[in-house]
């Protein structure tokens, strides 16, 4: 069968619109349920621990090596122009504005987005979500809202910690490998850093936290079939969250820093 290219593109565009509409409707319903009582406090605390506390090691490791590589790479480049003294500035601005929020969120998307989609997807295919409804418990309030709240609350904290660890990584390489004076490195870092650099990174983190948990919940909640459906939901949750992180990263950067 020969299908014209325009027909294929049209179908893809319609499918994209349909998916966007479905995610938007899901998000609106989830947010509405998240702000209305009852609140499942135990679920919220448990999700904050799961998303925040247990993600600290992986986010910390990502941050420290990113800071170290950034210092090393900047040195090899800047040394050509005798601009080595700008390394602390480059490290701190790159980390707080971009690399901290984006890399930490991508790691959390891989760890948490997948886990949320797998857990909720399994609950869907084993009728546990239907069971919640028959027990007069709204699945959006019990499953989705606590994860969204935990994502929005914990990602900024994780990113703040990642910023500090990343700067430490840059400091270690700068002082112990590149022979910077430790006091001068720290002074350069602090003097150059502005409130807006950190704040924009934390705003990004909150938005990314919402997107990661939303994608995990959406793909898990709408998964169909058995193990294959749950597997697809997991993959889709991570891929869609990652793409959304990059997309929203641009728009938030534009909102904060565009001239």
């Amino acid at each position: 069968m020969n299908i014209p290219l325009l027909t294929v593109l049209g179908r893809m565009f319609l499918a994209f619109l349909e998916a966007t509409g479905a995610v938007t409707a899901f998000a609106f319903h989830a947010v509405r349920q998240a702000v209305q009582p009852p609140y499942y406090r135990r679920q919220i605390v448990s999700q904050i621990l799961e998303i925040g506390y247990y993600s600290l090691p992986v986010v910390g490791l990502t941050a420290i090596f990113t800071g170290m590589v950034l210092a090393l790479q900047s040195y090899t480049g800047f040394a050509r122009f005798s601009a080595e003294s700008a390394i602390p500035n480059v490290v701190v601005v790159s980390l707080t504005r971009e690399l901290g929020p984006v890399l930490a969120s991508l790691m959390v998307a891989g760890r948490i987005g997948a886990a949320i989609a797998a857990e909720i997807g399994t609950m869907r295919v084993t009728e546990q979500i239907d069971a919640l409804t028959t027990l007069s418990t709204d699945p959006f309030k019990y499953l989705v809202a606590p994860r969204l709240i935990a994502g929005i609350v914990t990602l900024p904290i994780l990113v703040f910690v990642a910023d500090i660890i990343g700067i430490l990584g840059g400091f270690l390489v700068g002082v112990y490998k590149l022979d910077f004076n430790d006091a001068a490195y720290l002074r350069n870092t602090i003097d150059f850093l502005q409130f807006q650099d950190v704040f924009s990174g934390l705003v990004k983190a909150a938005v990314f936290g919402f997107l990661i948990t939303l994608m995990g919940c959406y793909h898990g909640y709408t998964s169909k079939g058995g193990a294959q459906g749950v597997g697809m939901a997991t993959t889709n949750a991570v891929v869609s969250a990652s793409i959304l992180i990059f997309t929203f990263n641009y728009f938030i950067t534009e909102a904060f820093f565009a001239r």
Partner: peptide
């Protein structure tokens, strides 16, 4: 439920 649907 058919499969029990217990919360694991």
């Amino acid at each position: 439920f058919q499969g029990g649907a217990l919360f694991d």
